[in-house]
Nucleic acid binder design. Sequence first.
DNA 1: AATAAAACCAACCAGCTTGTTTTTTTCTTC
DNA 2: GAAGAAAAAAACAAGCTGGTTGGTTTTATT
Lengths: 239, 239
Amino acid sequence: MPRSAAKKPPPANIALAELEPEGLTSEGQGWQQRKSAQTRVAILDAAIDCLEKHGYARTTTQLIAETAGISRGAMLHHYATKQELIASVIDYAFYKRMEAFIDRVHGLTEEQRVHQNAGMEVYWQSILTREYMATLQLSVAARTDAELREILLPKHRKYDRVERETVLAAFPEWSSKAELFELSMDFCIASMEGLLLNRDVWDDRRRRVALRALISAVILMIREGQFTPPSPEAYLPNG
Amino acid sequence: MPRSAAKKPPPANIALAELEPEGLTSEGQGWQQRKSAQTRVAILDAAIDCLEKHGYARTTTQLIAETAGISRGAMLHHYATKQELIASVIDYAFYKRMEAFIDRVHGLTEEQRVHQNAGMEVYWQSILTREYMATLQLSVAARTDAELREILLPKHRKYDRVERETVLAAFPEWSSKAELFELSMDFCIASMEGLLLNRDVWDDRRRRVALRALISAVILMIREGQFTPPSPEAYLPNG
DNA sequence: AATAAAACCAACCAGCTTGTTTTTTTCTTC
DNA sequence: GAAGAAAAAAACAAGCTGGTTGGTTTTATT
């Protein structure tokens, strides 16, 4: 029942390499440890599935165990409490998503990567994943759940930095304009998240058009240096 | 304990007027009906509070009743089931938010409204409300809760149309370019929602910069007609 | 081969949530 | 003023969740 264990491509940058989850490599020593790693990966993947399909509130330990194909007791042997499990899920989901992102970027041709701004499309792909949806569910839940927020927020802040480094490492030609690049990233992330949220209520055409507008806006922003608002702070009293 | 009942400004457009919630006017006939309306408003406001502060999953009937300052039995007298209550909350929150939006737009000078694009700032204000947050919580919950989705989705689609009409009615000069205006609205809504979600993890400056970039992008988009992406569909295989 | 440890499983308990039912209070109306 | 309806409160029943506990199988060690 355990799913295929995580592959091991060489970590693409230092910041990400440090975050590689432990105890999940199925190449280790004894049969027991290998089995244990497989089970853990199965549990984490099951948890991501549950988070994506049922949201944080309905992701019960029972449901995760069923999805993973093991008993609840077995699961609680590997992750004593739900908090512990969720913490591991956060790390696992982020690492897996970044890994996939890097893989996809490496799959681009130089032409696509530099001149066709395909990076944004790849990033959008990384947002359409189970892993990202699971993370988003946790983020929203954390907003109203102090306990979860205490676990998630520090990790989120750290991963925010690592994500910047990772993306910048994948597009080294922007290193000289790091600040502008990161502003564009922020803008891009926020907009794509919002787009993702409206997926259900908008039709396909509408989403496509909005996404195209977004990508165009970012390209323009990054080309021109920045937009020049007519009266910068005039209509931004608070927020 | 019941809060101040809803004021009654003349509805600003037809589509919105049809949606005015019933049974909430505290000017009606007998004392009992007035009291009943006050209690209902108190319950709905309490529910919005709870949704914003605790999320959908933790918004229990018990908690709503406590927040409203009444017993749970009293609440279930007015709204027999939780579904019924939530359905009313959706209507109430949307109507209240649109009402406030219209009020704020009417409060703008012609200079602000037309030449300074203050409409977007006003819209951002309407997103920073308890009502919007409560709605957002419901939206996210509905994604993984079939029962809730059946209640929310049709309302959401309807309100999406009404919102377009309402905003367009507030900015009639755009009627001739309705399609472009609505595309800009979509883009604006998605981006602001995403921005709202990242409120906790980003610092104040970062949010401000991203918001400014967003507003600038929309202004540019609406001025230039549309952005011209280098290769429109090239990097949009799916999504 | 025997002991220790890891992995796994099943049952239980306390707390909470929702919806129903019953009772009490308050207001309307004849 | 009294009967009846509406509103509010309280008590009850059934189901689910998370964490704990005790027991069983499998693997590692000596």
